[in-house]
Design a protein around this nucleic acid. Structure first.
Lengths: 150, 150
DNA sequence: CAACATTAGTCAATATGGTTGACCCATTTA
DNA sequence: TAAATGGGTCAACCATATTGACTAATGTTG
């Protein structure tokens, strides 16, 4: 790989870092007003995406230990954002769902990000969305290939 | 925004999160072998991108306090990865540069990420690189617009 | 020159976010 | 009935960050 190519790729690394950091700033600000943090947001987000998700599934998705999940999850339940009830098919399993209040907050948080993405893709055209997604998927896939070699 | 569009955008949010997480995993593994962490990597990366960068500039780039920078920076200097010397133009200012050893480590860390990006863009074609970068730049710019309103 | 500002380094106190380890309880499965 | 699973919780620990307070050296400006 020549120097010039390396420079170009360095720019992508920088963009990745700055874009991600920027992307989480607004939600972080909103979260702080509610006295909660980024992991709370992730919980809300994934529970929103998959209602009735189990604690176990959530742990796998977020790649944290149950001890790490525990405190924020309890807060969210206590604050009335999340509902945790035993599953009918297996009463050990807790099914997590957003309450109405939880849905509202999740909306507020993710709308900021969805709005950003939407505005960009609208301006750049639908192909840009396809391309961007494909690149991101490839990044994720590459890692999954490595998974077996650990 | 209709439900279907919202779903599509949710996918982009998920991809962003997973892709970023995946992207930092390999470097994190390597860092751990050296007994250092992600902030060390960022320091190495930005010092590599801009040799003779000052501490102040680095702080602004990373958006951390000098106290947060202090420990990892001292380690990097003590471990011989970074050289810190008074600038000629102003002897208060420290000019930070990578040592040869530092360049090697930075190479090792960033090559993983550059290699990933390069492989993907090579497979998807040069337009994908342009598009992906443009999207990321737009994400960053949107935030900079907000900056003034704080 | 004296006063002030800037750059950098450091200590301390504090909060948070995560880890591992060790348990408990209820329920399901073998 | 014994073992495995899903979930919850306590404790100890460590890293990462913050704010605040201070020092020291050097530059800038009235």
């Amino acid at each position: 790989m020549d120097k010039k190519r390396e420079e170009q790729l360095n720019e992508t690394l920088m963009l990745f870092y700055f874009a991600y950091r920027t992307f989480t700033k607004e939600p972080d600000r909103i979260l702080e007003q509610h006295g909660i943090h980024r992991l709370h947001h992730r919980i809300l987000f994934f529970v929103a995406r998959k209602p009735n998700i189990s604690v176990h599934e959530l742990l796998k998705t977020l790649e944290v230990t149950k001890q790490a999940l525990h405190a924020p999850m309890r807060q969210l339940i206590e604050m009335g954002y999340i509902n945790s009830e035993p599953a009918e098919y297996d009463r050990r399993v807790r099914e997590l769902r957003l309450t109405e209040k939880g849905e509202k907050l999740e909306m507020q948080l993710s709308n900021v990000q969805r709005g950003k993405m939407n505005a960009i893709f609208e301006e750049m055209g639908p192909d840009s969305e396809e391309t961007w997604k494909k690149v991101m998927k490839n990044i994720i896939d590459i890692d999954n290939d490595n998974e077996g070699n650990d």
